[in-house]
Structure formats: C-alpha cells, structure tokens
Write a protein that binds this DNA or RNA. Structure first.
Length: 472
DNA sequence: ATGTCC
C-alpha cells in the first residue's frame, strides 16, 4: 500500500474546519503517525473532532484538540430568535409568493422585532422581502433597507398643458435621451454641483471618504434595472386633495432611482459588519442588525441618511436638467424614499421602521406609487394606518422573475403593448416589460386601507437602461 | 441594485 501523506484538502474533506487547526493537524500527523494508514489516521482524527475536550491532555494529539476546542469556544454564539413572533399584517395575501411570506415570518421572529407588515406588491428578496416593512427596537438592519439605499420616486408636475407634450413630442424625446445617464457605472460629465457633496460625513466616515469620488462622478445619473425617467401626464383628481392644484391634466416628469454605487457599497459593507457582530440562525442571517447605540450602528445610520440625501439630489438634478430643457416650471413636486429606515412611533413607543420597497403612508403623507411603463402610477395620500405600519406598496410588484420574463416575452410582444398604449420606450429590456408586473389596479385595491389615490400619472415617453448583453 | 467579490 502506498504510504499515506496527509494534506489540508483531505482534512477539510473529513470535516475539519477551515482555520489554524489544519496546519497543526498536518504537522502532528506527519510527525507522530507517519507509519499509520489512511484509515487509522481518519479514525483517530474523527474521534478528536467529535470530542476535543477528551484529548486536551493527550500525549500526541493534544495540540489538535486544543485548537479545535478553542475554535468551538471562541465561535460567537448564534443569537436565538423569539419563540413567539410579533404580529404582522399581509395585504393582498392571495398574490404574494410563498418565499416573501417565509422571509417576513423569519423577520418577525428577530429578537429586536416589534411589528411587521407585508405590502401587496411583495416578492422574495434578500434579507427582508421586497414590499416588507419591519419595526424594530433600537436596531437597524442594513438588508432591511436594501442594497439600493434611498431608492425613491420623484414626480414634478409642470406648468405646461398636455398639448405641449403632444405638439413637441420629438423634442421631449430627444431631451430625455440626451440629458439622462443610464447603465451600470454611469458617469455624468457636467452639471453636477450639489450641496450634498459638501457633507461632513464624506470626511468623517472612512468608508464614505473612499466612496466620495464615485459619488461625485455618478451624481445625477439613473443606474439600471427597474430605474427610469419618463415624461407623462398627471391628472389631479380631486379639488379636496390638498395638492394645492386645480384638478386637470399637466405635463409631468417621473423618475425612479437610488444612491448608485455609493449606497450599494454602504449597504454591503455594513451588512458584512452586522453579520460578524450579530450571528443569527442561517435562514435569517441576512437580517443581521446593528445596535443603534453602537459605533457601527451610528455610522450606518449617518451613511444611510447621506445615501438617501444623495439619491434625492440625483433626482433633483435630473429634473432640473430636463425641465429647463423643455422650458417649464415646477408647480408641485411629490417624492419619497421606498428603501429606507426611519425613526417613528408605533403604539406609543420609539421604533425603527424599515421599508424595503414600501412607500411611507403616515397620515396625510404624499407619495408616488408607479404602475409600469404602460400602466398608470398614482399620487397617494397616506391614511396613517398603524396596523399597516404607515406604509403602502412601492409599485405593482413583479409577477415574473427577470429570467422568466426574458424567456417568455418577445420583442414583438413588448412593441405591441407599447403601441397599444401609445408609449415610446427608449432603452429598456424585456425583463422590464409591463407583462412582467402585476396589475397595478389589483394592487391598489388591496391597499385601500393604507392610502387614498389623489392623482394619476400616465407614462408617455419612457427612458430606461439599455438591455443587458444577454438580450437582443 | 451594484462595474453584480477589494
């Protein structure tokens, strides 16, 4: 029989943990057991692995046992979940996928959970589901906010009648194409002056200091995925709507985007830190949280707020450029984050409310819920419904995964539905086709308790990122 | 969502 030579891969193969014990075991075996067979060595090492405490004084194997024992003792203890979950309310349960409900069920078992809610556009995400709302006590969950921190809607209602858009359609289209920047990486080369870049957090938090150059370059850009900028028509529906605008039809600009690479890196860095500081059972490990009183928690909170303000600044620059280009003035602006965390009150106590793909809907709070590129979006006023955690959906929600949409929708299908609705699309992939989304009217009907509809936005010229290389 | 693992 060929002489057995131990190696690291073999040790990992029999179940030894990655770490310092590997080199120790190799040296011990090669020194003291060089005449043993592979089977004998395996048997011996498995016994030590199963009960290292019994071998701490062993003449030959003690070094291995000590390393194993140390790793076991030093490994941070998994934080146990609540035995009994806090309550959460589901809106539109009949069209929410099982994965999203499962994730929400995990979230309301977190030791810091106070209450939850699932919005009718919910679908499975990473950590908290998209459309998930979670109130916690003195803790913030980076992946309860999401990767695109401060992803938001911004609607500007412009002092131009509908006839200007229909009469100068080509000009509106040309400006939308030339004055927006889409795509991964996306850099805006001029017109990027904003006070957000002067914020002291960029100097005070080391991570933000490293991200500032990227933030400067990407300011005023839109990104990719489901992000868009579009011209359309707003109908103000009700004179009693507190919108301070007479009912009627107005040209409007609607945008959807977030905090670009800067926010993404903030999210990923702090969730990594949270997972080290807050080890949770595997099925909820992405919901790792930071204590708000801890240094890391306070840093994340500042960085998250800066990313939110940065996202807001991006929208404002986009709107300023485009509205100036078509010669209009803003009559009214409605805007809101839908990936963010806020300090709010719930049942009389201070909580942190995470909304990951959910629109704030406190009493009287205005928000925008988009439909799809061919379906109307809505200006809504929150009803302040506490059981729904003062929230509403952030859109129609997907009914098809991106991959399923790419497989089942053709370019012909997309062109047909655009034509039917009189919508011009610049860029945009099949995975963003209207058919990939739920029916917005069904979704709105499922959240009548949460928001009142006070205006309607109909898209006319839509700009999205160009489709990825896997598409035509 | 993000140049999709610093």
């Amino acid at each position: 029989m060929a002489k057995f030579k131990i190696n690291g891969k073999w040790l990992l193969g029999i179940g030894y943990p990655q770490g310092p014990v590997i080199s120790v075991a190799m040296s011990v075996i090669n020194t003291n057991y060089k005449h043993s067979t592979e089977d004998e060595v395996r048997e011996l090492l498995l016994q030590v692995l199963a009960a290292p405490q019994d071998y701490l004084e062993h003449a030959l194997l003690d070094k291995i046992a000590v390393k194993l024992y140390q790793e076991e003792v030093e490994k941070p203890a998994i934080i146990p979940l609540k035995e009994e979950a806090v309550p959460y309310t589901v809106y539109g349960a009949s069209f929410i996928d099982e994965g999203a409900v499962k994730q929400m069920t995990g979230a309301v078992h977190l030791p810091v959970a106070v209450a939850g809610a699932l919005m009718p556009d919910a679908h499975q995400g990473y950590g908290l589901p998209i459309g998930g709302v979670l109130a916690t006590e003195n803790a913030v969950i980076p992946y309860g906010v999401g990767v695109d921190i401060g992803c938001r809607m911004c609607l500007s209602i412009i002092d131009l009648p509908e006839t200007v858009l229909t009469g100068q359609y080509d000009k509106f289209k040309k400006e939308l194409e030339s004055k927006t920047v889409f795509g991964a990486g996306g850099i805006l080369k001029a017109d990027k002056d904003d006070a957000v870049l002067d914020r002291k957090e960029f100097e005070e938090i080391p991570l933000l200091k490293r991200l500032k150059d990227k933030a400067v370059m990407q300011l005023g850009t839109s990104g990719s995925g489901n992000h868009f900028v579009e011209w359309g028509i707003v109908e103000v529906l009700d004179v009693e709507n507190k919108l301070d605008l007479p009912p009627g039809r107005y040209v409007a600009l609607l945008s959807h985007s977030g905090s670009r690479g800067m926010g993404a890196q903030v999210a990923n860095e702090y969730t990594k830190l949270a997972r080290e500081l807050c080890p949770l059972p595997q099925h909820v490990q992405h919901l790792a949280y930071l204590d708000l009183n801890s240094e890391a928690g306070q840093e994340y909170w500042l960085a998250m707020n800066l990313a939110g303000d940065y996202a807001s600044a991006c929208h404002h620059l986009i709107h300023k450029r485009l509205i100036k280009a078509v010669g209009g003035n803003i009559l009214l602006r409605v805007e809101n984050h839908h990936n963010f965390a806020w300090k709010e009150r719930y049942e009389g106590k201070d909580v942190i409310v995470h909304r990951k793909g959910a629109t704030p809907a406190g009493e009287g709070v205005l928000g925008v819920i988009p439909g799809s590129m061919t379906a109307p979006g809505f200006i809504v006023r929150g009803r302040g419904y506490e059981q729904g955690l003062n929230s509403a959906s952030h859109g129609a929600g997907r009914q098809m995964s991106r991959s399923k949409a790419l497989k089942s929708i053709t370019g012909h299908d997309l062109r047909a539905v655009l034509k039917e609705h009189g919508v011009t699309l610049i860029g945009g992939g099949l995975d963003e086709a209207p058919m990939a989304y739920k029916d917005i009217n069904t979704v709105m009907a499922a959240q009548q308790e949460l928001v009142d509809i006070i205006g309607r936005f109909t898209p006319k010229i839509v700009r999205m990122a160009d489709p990825g290389p896997s598409e035509d």
